[in-house]
């Protein structure tokens, strides 16, 4: 995983997609984190087709139109940038759509039953806001990406089964290290323990790299992990 180049800080430093490297990095990052945006769009009242279109169009905009350069420098994280920009995008989309409906932007009464209905439908179903759920989805997307990347690299070494067995030890479970499991893998329990320890280390490194890739320079990975942890608090 080429972490050196697909970093948010690289994109920012280049002022958006102006260099080929930065543009490739932005594309990778966007491709990695489309789902939280899609879920956000769904939660703000769009159906599946609309949400997909919005996200597609949004990425096209971000990558083509160099929206990063216009990004607020205060918003350091890729996560925050993406949500703010996407919100803008959705707002613009809604405005232009309603303008077409109303027949070309003639002034209308601001009391709009349609808008109220739309707002009602968009009310979150839990007491969580779409914004909060977006962060939650983001955290899970990060973790899924890290686990998928690790699994790929284990698979390339032909150790898929080992990874699948040890996956649950990453989060601290020890049940997977049962002797019967080691036997099934043709390993000694001691060797399995060592392998679990190695996986943990690799996982930690991969997670920290992945998160660092979405941060601006000088931001603390541990802080971001804690922030993501907080978004996962039960609602």
């Amino acid at each position: 995983m080429g972490f050196a180049t697909t970093r948010w800080s690289v994109v920012r430093a280049a002022g958006g997609g102006s260099t080929p490297d930065a543009r490739a990095a932005l594309e990778t990052l966007c491709a990695a984190y489309w789902y939280p945006l899609y879920a956000f769009a769904r939660r703000t009242g769009r159906d599946a087709q609309e949400a997909e279109d919005s996200v597609q169009e949004f990425f096209a905009n971000v990558i083509e139109r160099n929206a990063v350069a216009a990004a607020d420098p205060g918003r350091g994280r890729f996560r925050d940038f993406l949500l703010a920009a996407f919100r803008n995008h959705l707002r613009n989309e809604a405005e232009s759509a309603s303008a077409i409906k109303r027949g070309g932007g003639r002034l209308t009464l601001s009391l709009d039953a349609g808008a109220a209905e739309g707002r009602f439908l968009a009310e979150p179903r839990h007491d969580a806001t779409p914004g909060r759920l977006y962060e939650r989805d983001w955290a899970i997307a990060v973790l899924e990406r890290v686990l998928a990347g690790l699994r790929r690299s284990y698979a390339s070494a032909g150790k898929e089964r080992l990874f699948d067995v040890l996956r649950e030890t990453i989060a601290g479970g020890e049940r997977a290290l049962h002797a019967s499991r080691a036997e099934a893998l043709g390993m000694t329990p001691g060797a399995l323990k060592v392998a679990a320890h190695r996986l943990r280390q690799r996982y930690r490194q991969a997670l920290r790299n992945e998160i660092a890739a979405t941060l601006a320079d000088g931001e603390d990975v541990d802080d971001e992990i804690r922030a993501l942890f907080a978004t996962l608090a039960p609602m």
Partner: peptide, 14 residues
């Protein structure tokens, strides 16, 4: 996440 706990996973990265 294959039934893993995202909170514990994140914690493991601290």
């Amino acid at each position: 996440l294959h039934g893993l706990c995202p909170r514990c996973l994140l914690e493991a990265g601290l």
